[in-house]
Design a binder for these strands. Structure first.
Ligand SMILES: [Mn+2]
Ligand SMILES: [Mn+2]
Ligand SMILES: [Mn+2]
Ligand SMILES: [Mn+2]
Lengths: 217, 217
DNA sequence: TTCCAAAATTAGGCTTGCCTAACTTCGTCG
DNA sequence: CGACGAAGTTAGGCAAGCCTAATTTTGGAA
């Protein structure tokens, strides 16, 4: 069985790759909160265990084996997050931290029971797709809110779950997963965006809009 | 925050003390599945951290601080066991192992939500009392089935949760927590016991009966 | 009372995963 | 080109927790 560290590294590599960012030593160190030297050390282990390919001074890439394990961990993480949110009623900005620990302690047996209890859900509380039990995952087909044109109609698909303060902010201004909206204004030079949702108008800055994924037109 | 190992050691010490067995190096090593030398090493740590008193070549005793933490861990363990059993429907012989890992990963926030979800239960699936949130615990007032006299009427109070095969055996012969029974026969020289429960007759050996706690007359 | 096996401890070693400090390599910009 | 800052790696170290082997202490049996 892989250690909690190995699981977290593979998950971090997968998430970087999925964001089409190369999984660099720097990126992993920042994402995992460790030093670059620690990443270099662990990458050697991951390579020796057959989880990744590594080209020195370039980044790292998951092998099929590594991807399989990364998706298993991600499935656990997201099912646990949804359980914490939907069944226990924890706010969406508090579930990630708990899930980060529980994902390494919950057996597959427990995860599959949770999955059943939740009705085999497709998305976690932040709108991210839950990998399937068979090792596949349905990719999100969306675009950044910041990339949309004025007039764009769609729904809020997914937001990053890493920053609790950001999630509280979003909740505070009324943005939640599934919300239908129309982009009504977009100031130039990366200025703020305005959307209509129902009869409410919501304004948010450009940097925030780069962290929100919405459905295509 | 104490490590998972420290938490398991304190829990093991507490359980030995509660069973009125002195918490010896041998007993801890057996209970935790490690070597005696490892126990000696950890006991030094626990002493340095103020969790236990230690008299060389004698056993170890929890301080107030150690007892507090032990009860917190035991509370987590038993709430998680009940959740796995009652909400997820895992059989009672499978919950201990999962709880042993989850007890170190679940935050107090999650535990208190689970406790609420379960209705602030008093007992875990094996009949053991769940320590309260304030650091107290209601002791079980029972006696071993093997110590009862023929004619004794009572209920099954609690069974050990450590041995899955034993739990499966008990379930197989129809023994479960809360079952009302009358002891109808007891062979001499540590022979088998027979109880009536409802219209069923259940026979079990003396060693098994020493692992079953029942209510006093 | 002595002796012996079990219990306990000490000594020393290993693995994992992190760190800092020193170095090498990369890629960009003047 | 050439140099310089960022990225990456190497070297060496540390803490936790486990191990085996050797030694010491204990307590009960002879
Ligand atoms: Mn998350
Ligand atoms: Mn994690
Ligand atoms: Mn248990
Ligand atoms: Mn445990």
């Amino acid at each position: 069985m892989a250690s909690a560290s190995v699981e977290d590294y593979l998950k971090a590599i997968y998430l970087l790759q999925t964001a089409r960012t190369p999984a660099t030593t720097r990126g992993l160190a920042d994402g995992l909160g460790v030093r670059m030297a620690s990443v270099t050390g662990m990458v050697k282990q991951l390579h020796a265990a057959g989880y990744v390919r590594h080209e020195r001074y370039r980044g790292v890439q998951l092998t099929a084996k590594g991807r399989r394990l990364a998706l298993r961990v991600l499935r656990r993480h997201r099912i646990i997050e949804l359980f914490l949110s939907k069944v226990l009623g924890l706010p969406w900005d508090e579930v990630h931290e708990d899930a980060e620990a529980l994902e390494h302690a919950a057996s597959d047996r427990v995860i599959e029971r949770l999955n059943t209890l939740l009705g085999s859900p497709a998305f976690d509380p932040h709108g991210a797709p839950i990998p399937h039990g068979d090792g596949t995952i349905s990719p999100l087909n969306g675009r950044l809110l910041s990339d949309c044109e004025v007039g764009h109609r769609g729904r809020i698909l997914c937001v990053s779950d890493k920053d609790p303060a950001f999630l509280r902010y979003l909740a505070g201004i009324g943005i939640r997963i599934g919300l239908r909206f129309r982009l009504v204004d977009k100031a130039p030079f990366d200025g703020p965006l305005a959307i209509h949702a129902g009869r409410k108008k919501i304004v948010l800055g450009h940097p925030a809009a780069t962290r929100v994924l919405v459905s295509p037109p």
